[in-house]
Design a protein around this nucleic acid. Structure first.
Lengths: 134, 134
DNA sequence: GTACATTTGTTCGTATGTATT
DNA sequence: TAATACATACGAACAAATGTA
């Protein structure tokens, strides 16, 4: 079951799937720490590179958040503030640049919603804390 | 001006900024190929690891798209189909899982828009080809 | 159709730096 | 201070996909 290095599926993807399942199944709860890189290396008998790539996949999916010196935690789901679209307004979703990520304090794997008001103004909203309504 | 390995800014971020600028300034046009990893390595005197991380940053931002055996191209901006939100509908933006990425044929760095209709149905729309309207 | 060159992907090894506990 | 944990960076080797001669 665990991980088959001879599979055609890359090791890091197999590991990402396993961890993804641990999280989405609820066996790992929000805010809880994933095993450390070193632990994953020994537990699954894979290289550190594979571990880091697997965790990077989860980060890009917005599933976890990594803090240096601490570890990787399951991201908590927060309440979403409604943003109302009026007639003539439009909204698109896109990924922020690294600089926008810092500016708006966004985790990796979190998109932004760009609202263009009919009047012309543009608003940026954090994708994980926003819900568009009509 | 190029890249300073002794800077406190990581090499791969400096390189990502340079490439980001090449693209957003228009000096690199859509569909055009970035220099190959090997070329970037020799051109900027950095390791392949730094080059790959820099390109990974651009991919995560949805700025470029990498094809194995070919190279990395600047992503083209495509037309967006409008999706109308009616009263009682809500929409959120999030990153897709790897499996959804395949299912909906999404590039890396492209979010999905999840529309929940008042009636209860859920629709998934590609973030780079969709525009929400009221 | 084959063979080869090019390009990105995967994996391992090694070393050093930085943040937190 | 020391231990733990993640980040950055270089090098190396081989695999896999693509395009071309």
């Amino acid at each position: 079951m665990a991980i088959d290095p001879r599979s055609d599926r890359p090791v890091y993807r197999q590991l990402a799937d396993l961890l993804h399942d641990e999280i989405s199944s609820g066996r790992m709860s929000p805010d809880s720490l994933l095993p450390s890189e070193a632990q994953l290396v020994t537990e699954y008998r894979v290289g550190r590179e594979a571990v880091r790539q697997a965790v990077a996949v989860l980060r890009a999916e917005g599933l976890v958040r990594t803090e240096r010196g601490i570890g990787t935690r399951v991201r908590r789901v927060v309440d979403r503030a409604p943003v109302r679209l009026r007639r003539g307004d439009t909204a698109v979703a896109r990924m922020p640049s690294i600089h926008e990520r810092r500016e708006y304090d966004l985790d990796e794997g979190v998109p932004v919603i760009e609202v263009r008001r009919a009047a012309g103004e543009v608003e940026i909203h954090a994708g994980d804390r926003t819900e568009i309504t009509s």
